[in-house]
């Protein structure tokens, strides 16, 4: 086999494929995969790198993920340091210049204002993110901002379908705003209530719904709960008319159950992302279920 022929053959078939096929999106988290589905429908193929039962801080740069990223035209991730332990390695190993460049890399955190930007960076304070708390998906207002920016990016990367993305954004945005109204009305009784969280994944939900976070099971972000720290939370949780002890679907239930037994406050498991609960099948259901579960704890 002549090498030149083989190589040009490969190039030709690559061009032929790219001309015919839909664009491929690599989404780091299920929420952004779901958002791409809302905005693009079947115009794109979406590979979601993680599931709601996985801790996205701690994913390994697995071969299967390198293979997925290798073929992607657009990468859609939270950013803000959330995937710092694996995404840079995937990008370096995948040899895909499209997603290593500015247009092919879309980071949701960069589209919104973040909360909890640390004034001082010190690892003694736990796993801090210099760009602020990256768990922005539980604030539907920020999700809408991300949607606007993402639709614009899809239009840029896949100009042939630009009208489609514009129409779908319009449709999504109308439905989303109506849903937000509904959620806010339903969640009104939650305003001002106290919650204890496992990890600081809920600050955006708290800000949106007016919940107060009075404590966290992790003494420092990313450091697993210790018994001494949990013991210190019992009195606080018990005496603050706490609504619930909240953990994400992927987190170990042990610590929150322990605190729940001693404080009498219900421990609840919220999806945190699409797929974290069997009913949370898309972004709309994610918020419906989250508010249902919080209201359930309030009764």
């Amino acid at each position: 086999m002549n090498f030149r022929h083989l190589f040009s053959g490969l190039l030709l078939s690559a061009f032929a494929l790219s001309a015919a096929a839909q664009i491929r999106v690599f989404a780091c988290e299920p929420e952004w995969g779901a958002l791409v589905n809302e905005l693009a429908g079947d115009a794109v193929t979406v590979d979601v790198a993680t599931s709601a039962l996985q801790d996205v801080h701690q994913i390994e740069a697995r071969p299967s993920l390198i293979a997925k990223l290798r073929r992607a035209d657009l990468l859609v991730c939270s950013g803000g340091g959330l995937e710092a332990g694996w995404l840079p390695q995937l990008i370096r190993q995948a040899g895909n210049a499209r997603v290593a460049s500015a247009d092919g890399m879309f980071l949701a955190v960069a589209q919104v204002t973040t909360l909890e930007r640390p004034s001082q960076l010190d690892r003694a304070a736990g796993d801090l993110h210099a760009e602020g708390n990256p768990h922005i998906q539980m604030d539907p207002r920020r999700v809408l901002q991300v949607a606007n920016a993402l639709a614009a990016r899809l239009q840029k990367v896949d100009a042939a379908n630009a009208t489609r993305y514009a129409q779908r954004l319009e449709d999504f945005s109308t439905r989303w705003q109506a849903a937000m109204l509904r959620w806010q009305q339903r969640a009104a009784p939650l305003r001002g209530r106290n919650i204890v969280v496992h990890h600081k994944s809920w600050v955006y939900l708290e800000e949106w719904l007016g919940l107060n976070e009075i404590g966290a099971l992790e003494a420092k972000p990313g450091v697993p709960p210790t018994s001494a720290h949990l013991a210190g939370l019992v009195a606080l949780t018990k005496d603050s008319q706490t609504l619930a002890i909240v953990r994400a679907a992927y987190q170990d239930a042990k610590a929150s159950r322990w605190l729940s037994e001693r404080s009498g406050v219900p421990a609840i498991r919220l999806p945190l992302t699409v797929g974290g609960d069997e009913r949370a099948t898309d972004l709309f259901a994610l918020f419906d279920v989250t508010i249902d579960l919080l209201l359930g704890a309030a009764q």
């Binding site: 690559a14 299967s64 293979a67 290798r70 073929r71 190993q93 040899g95 895909n96």
Partner: peptide, 12 residues
């Protein structure tokens, strides 16, 4: 020089 194949299974 490394090449990653555009396949479902990772191949380098």
């Amino acid at each position: 020089l490394r090449w990653v194949a555009p396949t479902d299974v990772y191949l380098e």
